[in-house]
Simulated scan of single mutants.
Amino acid sequence: MLCNIRKVVSAGSLVLLAAFSTAAGAAWPDKPVTIIVPWAPGGSTDILARVISEHLGKSLGQPFVVENRAGASGNVGSSLVARAKPDGYTLLVGSMSTHTMNQALYSKMPFDGVKDFTPIAKLALVTNTMVINPSVPANNVAEFIAYAKTRPGEIAYASAGPGSTNHLSAALFEKATGITMLHVPYRGGAPAVLDTVGDRTQLLFTAGTQSLPFVKDNKLKLLGVTEADRAPTLPDVPTVDETVPGYELTVWYGAFGPAGLPADIVDRLNTEINKALKDPEVVSKMESMAVQVVESTPEQFSQDLARDAEKYDKLVRDLGIRIE
């Protein structure tokens, strides 16, 4: 009798221990994990997500599968993660646009970029370039401003669509310099680049991944970068701020989970992601695309997210950009 009681108690303890271990996240991951990229395949965000997923799959023993769910400037894919169960099996590689700009740009949003997500790690900074068609007789930012001021409304700038970082960069530039230009929105970054190369538009603010190959072939002229500091990969290229004090727009990528993601899973992911970003091959691969990997804690990323959400919300509203 006593032996049977002991067996029952022991079995019950094992059940409780197993339940506790599962609740604490010790068993995670015990099945494949989905990483949502809210843009089409082939871009720097997608490439970065796939590099990280490969590392996580090896280090954590389960497949990390990248799934591209593009649409509505990143809102479609991001909303899937915002609504997902916070169990660590649905993650997101998003950007500053999806989490700090879209809230102010769109009159109807399917999520809150800060409240509906758990920041895991800031992943990288994207070198955002200011390029012009060689037909424009300017070799630096100051010369371009002087040229544009004599031709109000005549210079056309391209963007990947209303509310894109290309659009915001140019609108901010107009406001900071007092010049007036014509906005030509496209459905994506590729046609915006090609039409600037073809001189159908004359100016484009875009990621170096898209512009630098054309700069190398002398089909575009590189005037500056939009970050606060010069890019480590382009040390001889000035920032726009060096000519237009106070001008700054930094584009970053980050890893997120749904709101309420357990802290132990967040910490584990953050540790493994930071390990992947230190790999010399990863660093070299991303630098070749003008992307600078960074290291952060969840707490640091959370603070950056909140600060930038407030900053860009005000900026977008001040510029009067709105997407219905």
Rank of each mutant, 00 (worst) to 15 (best):
S159I: 07
N139T: 13
E227Y: 07
Q202V: 05
T243I: 07
G198I: 04
E227F: 03
D30W: 15
S159P: 05
V93E: 00
P137F: 05
S135D: 13
I155Q: 02
G320K: 03
N166V: 13
R268L: 01
E324V: 08
G208M: 01
M96S: 15
A276K: 11
I265A: 03
A290I: 06
E154Q: 14
R6Y: 00
D116W: 09
M289H: 09
M181N: 04
G254C: 13
T177C: 10
A158V: 02
D217H: 14
D241N: 14
A176M: 13
P238G: 06
F111Y: 11
T45M: 15
D116S: 07
Q210L: 15
I5M: 09
L172T: 05
D217I: 04
R230H: 15
G94F: 06
N75V: 03
V126E: 09
E310T: 01
P86T: 01
A148M: 00
K275M: 04
Q292G: 11
A146D: 08
G161L: 00
V131K: 02
L168G: 14
P298H: 04
F214D: 03
G163L: 11
S288D: 06
T297F: 08
R187M: 14
P38G: 07
S59Y: 00
M1C: 15
A160F: 03
A290Q: 06
L212T: 09
L168A: 04
